[in-house]
Amino acid sequence: MRTSLIEIAEIESWVLQQGDPADRLVTEGRLLLNPALREQAAWQTQTYAVVREYGRQKLKEEIKAVENQLFTSAKHRRFQERIRSIFSF
């Protein structure tokens, strides 16, 4: 793996608290001494948040598609009637 990717992997272990604790301590020291590396770590942390949000949105879309099917398809009429009876009064 090229150097920049190895550095990304190193930041990842530190951000996600994975791998050898001794290696993470070394990374911690490098981050304290290297503002550019610190900045990369901050952007990488933000990137994980974006990936997580994307995953959430995808899952929610899948859930909504299933829900829509249950609430509109004729083959789920019994379910629809049951829910309608709950909210009808």
Partner: peptide, 15 residues
């Protein structure tokens, strides 16, 4: 390797 390449690409775009 592709995972780290993607991370590098998206990190640059996020920035």
């Amino acid at each position: 390797v592709q995972k780290y390449k993607c991370l590098e690409k998206l990190r640059a775009e996020v920035k």
